[in-house]
Design a protein around this nucleic acid. Structure first.
Lengths: 206, 206
DNA sequence: GCGCTTTCGCTACGAGTCGTAGCGTAACTG
DNA sequence: CAGTTACGCTACGACTCGTAGCGAAAGCGC
């Protein structure tokens, strides 16, 4: 059995450097031009590759921007800050820091908007961005149960639904605050949000 | 003193029917084509007007879609359902019903994305869509205080910040659930969300 | 080494959209 | 009726799109 990524083991291999250059050029173009004025021709020029090379690897602007933005979420982590409220506060600030970057601001909402009419794109976003975030919710929930702050999970199906709810609340609130209200997610806001969410979780016993 | 809207009281007046036809055609095109494939030329044809007429009234696609989508939010109300939790649940379901319509799905997030690089567009969205929603939060908060469910507001500045927080949480969660998670905001979800938010509000004494 | 295969950069192309200008006509005012 | 503005229509240059065709480059199996 050979290497797992053996779709084509013959011929000239695709330049991995080109991949990185194209994605970096995409983020750069997002910052300078924004989503609507970003063109694949311009990205190719910035990356130092031919336009055809970009089209060989990505189906279009949507897919390219998803991959370019997804890389920004690699840095998301959940350090143990001692309490559930503090953990929530920490992840909110981290998420907000990413969202505050202009390449994320411009690109993320645009592809989400496009995804409303494109099932495959929605799945791509889910796999490369959303799931990575959602894992933090599950981790934080388990940590809180271990500390005794919340009762341990019993029904796994209910636990999954609750995790989904929390995730939509956290991510949704941060996104809405940043992009729609256009107000900063500073430490004060994060503290008040975390207090409210923690209070709701404790009150409903989930 | 003459009529208040007297920018130009001479010459041929602008057809109000054309305004309505263009906005309706925009919503129709949003449903059929989505944001990215919507063109002003197509909208003009659907509305039965010349392309130049559209450009005389709107600066571009962004502004036109904001106005077309804003009309969808006219129906938002806050009937008294007896308790704060029930009120939250009601407004969540209403908001979700609007967001579930394809013309809102496709258009709203796209203009929000564009607004990240356009201050004037952000202000237009705020005035015609966001503020209308936010008023419901203030109203619901006051009603809850009247019922004795929450302590009355003392510091008006703190009250305003809390209203902003609640608004971002409610609207953000519904938008995220609908567009990113792509899961339905049904009665069960709304009930669990309202319970969590109400618990958080009661716990933090805001 | 040598052929086979795939990717590469480059150029060119038709199709489509953009936003504007110019024109004659329509609608309303004093 | 004269003045003013909106209207429908046509045409336009500039731009982007996504694809096709080419010769050269870069690995792989023999």
């Amino acid at each position: 059995m050979e290497s797992r990524t053996s779709a084509a083991r013959t011929g000239r291999p695709r330049s991995v450097a080109a991949d990185a250059a194209i994605l970096a050029a995409t983020r750069e173009a997002l910052v300078e031009l924004g989503w609507s004025k970003l063109t694949l021709g311009d990205v190719a020029t910035r990356a130092g590759v031919a336009k055809t090379t970009v089209y060989r690897r990505w189906a279009g602007k949507n897919e390219l921007v998803v991959d370019a933005v997804a890389a920004l979420f690699d840095e998301l982590e959940l350090p143990d800050r001692g309490s559930l409220a503090a953990d929530i506060e920490g992840v909110v600030l981290q998420f907000a820091a990413i969202l505050d970057r202009p390449e994320a601001k411009s690109g993320l909402m645009a592809v989400v908007a496009e995804a409303t009419r494109d099932e495959a794109l929605r799945e791509r976003i889910r796999a490369s961005i959303v799931d990575r975030q959602k894992r933090l919710v599950v981790e934080g929930r388990a940590r809180a149960a271990q500390r005794g702050e919340l009762p341990p999970e019993t029904d796994p199906e209910a636990a999954s639904r609750t995790a989904d709810l929390i995730f939509d609340v956290v991510a949704g609130a941060v996104v809405h605050r940043t992009l729609v209200s256009a107000e900063p997610v500073d430490e004060d806001w994060a503290r008040r949000f975390a207090a409210m969410l923690f209070g709701g979780l404790a009150a409903t016993g989930t």
